[in-house]
Design a protein around this nucleic acid. Structure first.
Lengths: 131, 131
DNA sequence: CTGTATCCTTAGGGATACTG
DNA sequence: CAGTATCCCTAAGGATACAG
C-alpha cells in the first residue's frame, strides 16, 4: 500500500517537513541508523511505544518517499535515507546542548565537535555496507 | 498562555521532535531565521498558509520551549533557537540534494558545501546582533 | 512474526467572526 | 494589527483483536 504526501510549497524546509515532519518518522530512521533495527517487531519495542497502525503507516510513507526500502521483511535505509545522517547528527548535537537529561553519550557529542566531517563519512560508509 | 509539552523518552532525537516535530514549528523558525519576519501578520502570509489558531498555538509552544522570545509584539530567536541554524542548514542541503523542484538557491547550497563552518558562524553572528 | 482491521478518543487544522 | 473564540471536520494516535 502506497502513501502519497501532499506538497505545501517549493521551500526546501517545507519539502522536508512534508516527508518527515511528524513525531514518529525520524524515530524509525534513528532506529535504522543508530540501533541496527531492521524488523517490524524491533521497531515496535522502542522506548516511545509506537502503536502498530502508526508504525505500518510510517513505514509505508517512508518507503514511498524513498528513504527506506524493504526486502523480505527486512527494512534498510536507502541512499536518500543515509543522507539524513548530517541532519540527525545536528539534531543530536542540538539536544545535547540544550537538554541536561538527554541520553546522548558524551563521547558522541565530543566526537562530533572534534571531527564532524570524518564522523559523517565514516558512519555513512559503515551504514551503506549493509550489516 | 503557556503550552507545555509531554516528554516521550530521554533520547535526543525524541527530545527534539517533542519540541519541533510537526509540520509548522520549523517553518516559523525558518521565517525568523532566513526571512526576517518578526510579527504575527508576517508569519500569517507564508506560502504554506498557516491558520491563525495554529500560528498562535505554535508561537506559544516555541516561546515556552525557549526557542523564541517576544518583546512588544516582535518575535525573535533566542540563543537556543539560533543554535538550530546547523540543523536547518542540513535540512536545506538534504532537500536540495533530493528534490529537483526545491526553491533552495544554488549559491546557498554551494556555499554550504564550500565552507559550512564559516557560513554558520557568520549567519549566527548576523542573527544574534538583531535586525 | 508481520502486519490489518476496528473502535474510539484526542489533537490538528481550516474558516471565519470577533475583540482590545 | 495581534491575537481569541468558535464551529466543524479530518488526521493522528492508542488499544486491542485478528489474519496470513
Amino acid at each position: 500500500m502506497t502513501k502519497r504526501i501532499k506538497r505545501r510549497s517549493d521551500c526546501p524546509i517545507s519539502f522536508a517537513l512534508d516527508i518527515f515532519g511528524d513525531k514518529w518518522s525520524l524515530l524509525i530512521i534513528r532506529d535504522l541508523m543508530f540501533k541496527e533495527k531492521r524488523t517490524y517487531s524491533e521497531f515496535l519495542i522502542s522506548e516511545e511505544k509506537i502503536s502498530t497502525n502508526i508504525l505500518a503507516d510510517r513505514l509505508a510513507k517512508l518507503e514511498d518517499a524513498g528513504l527506506i526500502s524493504k526486502f523480505r521483511c527486512l527494512y534498510s535505509l536507502t541512499e536518500k535515507g543515509i543522507d539524513l545522517v548530517p541532519v540527525m547528527v545536528e539534531i543530536i548535537r542540538w539536544s545535547a546542548n540544550h537538554d541536561k537529561k538527554t541520553g546522548a553519550p558524551k563521547e558522541f557529542v565530543d566526537r562530533i565537535k572534534h571531527d564532524r566531517e570524518n564522523f559523517i563519512a565514516e558512519l555513512t560508509m559503515c551504514l551503506s555496507t549493509g550489516r
